[in-house]
């Protein structure tokens, strides 16, 4: 089961903090973002980073079944 987490602006755009999306397994990070934008059109307006298992992922990284992925806008702590 692939879990997707949202934070800050992406959580507001999606209206959820986490969803299960088994269909993301096997796709690249870039494809996963495209699928999420299809499901949640407000994400189209945002420049998005993706992490896989709590590590920043390049766009060509592969999402595996059971991964925890997160999508978020540029961080702004401090």
């Amino acid at each position: 089961m692939t879990k997707v987490l949202f934070f800050g602006a992406t959580a507001d755009a999606v209206g959820e903090r986490s969803v299960e999306m088994p269909e993301l397994a096997g796709s690249t990070a870039e494809e996963a973002i495209a699928r999420l934008r299809n499901a949640y059109p407000l994400l189209a307006n945002q420049k998005i980073n993706i992490s896989i298992n709590q590590e920043y992922a390049p766009t060509d990284a592969i999402v595996n079944d059971g991964d925890e992925i997160a999508i978020f806008t540029a961080v702004s702590g401090g």
Binding site: F7, I33, I50, Y56, A57, A70, T73, A74, V75, S76
Partner: peptide, 25 residues
Amino acid sequence: VPIWKKEVYADGEAWSEGESFGDAI
């Protein structure tokens, strides 16, 4: 570091966005 700041104003709010990092698309 994945931490986000929301600024709340008298008439609204906005998530602050920092400098882009990594493969953002």
